[in-house]
């Protein structure tokens, strides 16, 4: 556990040393604020719901930028050798790195908290849905970062890791949105696909709902991709 946190801490600090972190942070703040002010004005509901709906789409491109170097960079620079010959397990490495990236992701919530403060100053928002919405956002982030960790274990090339992550995320968002509309699919398949859609899962949180099934969805997704990342890391030694 300690070693996992050691790895997480190193990952988090090294993220802050890389320019990409600040680009992501900047774009995220800019994007969220812009989306926020579209629906901000007299007579509008004092809520973060439309903002978060948009923010979830932003994450499709911003999260892979955080995760693309997680593991690939270790292989590219060779630091994977001293790391994987230290007494740590592959699982500790992958989960540690994911936790570090989650640490950075949570920093992204700061601009959102500023927007919450703006709402509080100008109106009296209902904090319930805001809190659940942010919880949902963290889960989405965690899921995307797990996908990113997997993609980044698959290649030494950061760009490929980025593209692969975006692609897999799109499968879980855009594809699962349009595919169920295909006429030839049975209703059971459609329902399953809607369930797999990240945005649908997030929508519940954004409404202020806390449902076990949503948690199960994200927990399974994160566990699955982190598990695959560990397997990929292991297999890279055998190849």
């Amino acid at each position: 556990m300690n070693q996992m946190l050691t790895i997480a801490k190193r990952e988090l600090t090294s993220l802050f040393y890389s320019p990409i972190a600040y680009v992501v942070l900047g774009l995220f703040s800019l994007g969220t604020t812009m989306i926020f002010f579209i629906g901000f004005g007299p007579g509008q509901p004092a809520t973060l719901r439309p903002t978060l709906e948009g923010v979830v789409w932003l994450l499709i491109f911003l999260v892979p930028a955080i995760s693309m170097r997680l593991i690939s960079e270790e292989f590219r620079s060779g630091t994977v050798e001293p790391l994987l010959t230290a007494p740590v397990t592959d699982t500790q490495v992958v989960v540690g790195k994911w936790l570090g990236a989650m640490g950075f992701f949570s920093v992204l919530l700061v601009p959102l908290l500023v927007l919450v403060a703006v709402l509080e100053i100008t109106a009296s928002p209902d904090f319930g849905p805001i809190v659940t919405g942010l919880v949902g956002l963290v889960l989405v982030g965690g899921f995307y970062l797990a996908i990113g960790a997997f993609a980044s274990a698959a290649t030494q090339n950061q760009i490929i890791a980025f593209m692969l992550t975006v692609f897999i995320i799109c499968v879980f968002t855009i594809a699962m949105f349009f595919l169920p509309q295909a006429a030839f699919l049975g209703p059971g398949v459609r329902e399953a696909m809607f369930y797999l859609n990240v945005n649908m899962q997030f929508a519940d949180f954004n409404k202020g709902l806390i449902d076990t099934s949503n948690f199960v969805y994200f927990a399974t997704g994160i566990a699955l991709f982190l598990f695959l990342a560990v397997k990929l890391l292991e297999s890279r030694r055998w190849r």
Binding site: R10, T13, S18, S77, G78, T79, P82, T85, A86, P87
Partner: peptide, 17 residues
Amino acid sequence: RAKIGYLPENTPLYPEM
């Protein structure tokens, strides 16, 4: 692993640390 101290070829290190 705990018994071995290993210096890999080309000494890979983290430049930002």
